Computed example of a mutant assay.
Amino acid sequence: MISRSWRSVALAVVVVALVVGIGVVASGLWSVLWGGDDARIEGLSEEVPWEQAIVVPTVAPRTTEPAEPVFDLAQHSTSDPTSRWVIVNKQHPIDKGYEPADLVDVDGERVRAAVEPDLRAMVEAAAADGARVVVRGGYRSYTEQVGARAAVEARRGFAHAERYSARPGFSEHQTGFAVDVDSGSQPSCNLQTCFTRTPEGAWLAERAWEFGFVVRYTEQNSAVTGYAPEGWHLRWVGRELTAHLRAEGIGSLEEALGVPGGPEYVAG
C-alpha cells in the first residue's frame, strides 16, 4: 500500500500540474484577445494578423465633376485699336490717324498679319466645298473711308449710306480686321442683299466661324450693331471667340463683350 505521505505528494503534484495548465491556457487566451503584433487567429487563414482579420467598412469619398473653365472675355481690349477684339461702331469711333503697323497683302487687299492665315484657310476651304469666295476689300484708311462713304451717298442717298456705310472714323475697315468678300459664282449679288442666298453667302453664314470670322452685320443683330445686314462683311476676332459665340448662341460682338451699340452716331 502507498503510504499516506506518498498520497499527499502525488496529490500535490496533480494540483500543481492543474494550476500550471490552467495558467498556460489563460495566457494563450489573453494573448489572442489582447495581444500585440504577435497575436494570431487560427482557422481564418494561416497566421493572419489580428488587425488584418478585422475588416473595417470604408465609405468612398464623394467625387464632383470638375467645373468647366470660364471663357475669359476680358483677355483682349475692346477699345485699343490694335486689339483683335476692338469694337468700332456708331458709338465707338477710331482715331482718324490710326493705321496698323503690320498690314500684309492677301489677294491684292491689305489685312492685319494675324488675319492672313485664317483668311487664306477660309477661302481654300470654301473652294473645296464649291463656294468661290473672293476677297474684295480689307484695310481702309480714314481718307479712303471718306471717299467710300461719299460714293455711297452720291449713288444711293444719305439715308441708305447711314444704314450701310460707316462715316469716316467709324469704320471697322480702318482696324485691318474687317474684310469684304464677293461671290465668284453669282457676281450680280455682290454688295447686294441677295448675297446671303449665293453659295458663298450660305457657306460663310455656316462656316466662317470655324476660321475666326463673324458675319458682322445680320438681320438679327442690326438693332445692336446699327447697320443693315451685310452678308459679305466679315470681321476677324480669332477662333477662340467665334467658337464661344457659336456655343453660347450669341449674335453680336457688342452683346458678347458688353459694349453698347445702336443705330445713332455718338457725334449726333
Rank of each mutant, 00 (worst) to 15 (best):
G35W: 01
G35M: 02
G36W: 04
D37F: 04
D38P: 01
A39I: 05
A39V: 05
R40I: 13
I41C: 03
I41M: 01
E42G: 08
E42F: 02
E42Y: 07
G43Y: 02
G43M: 04
L44P: 08
L44N: 06
L44W: 07
S45A: 05
S45I: 00
S45E: 01
E46I: 04
E46M: 06
E47M: 11
E47T: 10
E47G: 10
V48S: 00
V48Q: 00
V48N: 00
P49G: 03
W50S: 08
W50Q: 09
E51W: 02
E51T: 05
E51N: 03
Q52N: 13
A53G: 11
A53W: 04
I54P: 01
I54A: 06
V55Y: 00
V56T: 15
T58Y: 09
T58K: 14
V59H: 06
V59I: 14
V59D: 07
A60Y: 12
R62S: 14
T63S: 13
T64Y: 09
P66H: 08
P66V: 06
A67W: 09
A67C: 11
A67D: 14
E68V: 15
E68D: 15
E68Q: 15
F71L: 15
F71W: 15
D72L: 05
D72N: 13
L73Q: 08
L73I: 12
A74K: 13
A74R: 10
Q75M: 14
H76E: 08
H76F: 14
S77I: 12
T78S: 01
S79V: 12
D80C: 10
D80Y: 09
D80N: 14
P81C: 05
P81V: 10
P81N: 07
S83P: 08
S83G: 11
S83E: 11
S83F: 09
R84Y: 01
R84H: 01
R84F: 00
